[in-house]
Amino acid sequence: MNLQNKNNSKLKAGIFGISGCSGCLLSILFEDTFKKINDLLEIKSFPLIKEDKYKGDFDIVFIEGTVVFDDDIIFLDEIRKRSKIVAALGACSCFGGVPSIKNFKDDEKTMRFVYPKHNHLKSEKPTPINLHIKVDYYLPQCPPNKEEIVSFVNHLASGTQFKNCQDPVCMECRKKGNACLLEEGELCLGPVSNGGCSALCPSNGVGCYGCRGPSKDANMNAYTANLKKRGYNKKSIKDKMETFAGLSFEEEMEKDSKWLGK
């Protein structure tokens, strides 16, 4: 989509959060990121830092968080109408994130565990925003990659195509010359997860959680068969996959894994 406007004025932007921890919004606030995107965008609304009085339209809106309540959906519908472009910011917004772990647990047990005394509460199913509104761009990861945000805004402002990294985490990890965590006995989702994070976790000795979602090119069948050989059981693998992008991994699994799929 070409947003370049003829009079060279800055793109009007909104930065919002729905049910979430505001961590993604915070990552935009980091000094270097904020300065760079503020040079290119006119930030009309950013309720985290300033009371939102703007009633007009946006060129671009960033949305953080998971859809949990009906209010979230009403808000999303309104924002979608007011903005030319919607970008999902962070793993929650893109995939359901940590809140969506709940989708894989027994509803009753979870409720009683979290709220032992509040029997009247209704349990909601957390979902990513693209199940409710059209999403134009995804900036996944938990928290999102600051460099990717800046690069996205750069592309937007210059009217060029933005593309997420489609390569697996392993590519970036191996380029750094890291020892393979699978070989070291860590459960790592690197081979089946989208990169674009410079292999941040594996480079620090933590197995990849797949917070940028499953790779479109993932060979789930070979991967899970390999994990089985290494002694992992279904539960440990599912738990890992369900951490940030469980709903998306589940889809991939059903397509491709003989061992783990339904």
Partner: peptide
């Protein structure tokens, strides 16, 4: 091929693999 994860470890660690990409990195501001 069935076992291949397309993780590219073979090509990254191969001493003769030299394939590359040419990209522009821009500071728009």
């Amino acid at each position: 091929v069935e076992k291949c994860l397309s993780c590219s470890a073979c090509t990254v660690f191969c001493p003769t693999c030299n394939c590359f990409d040419i990209q522009d990195v821009k500071e728009l501001s």
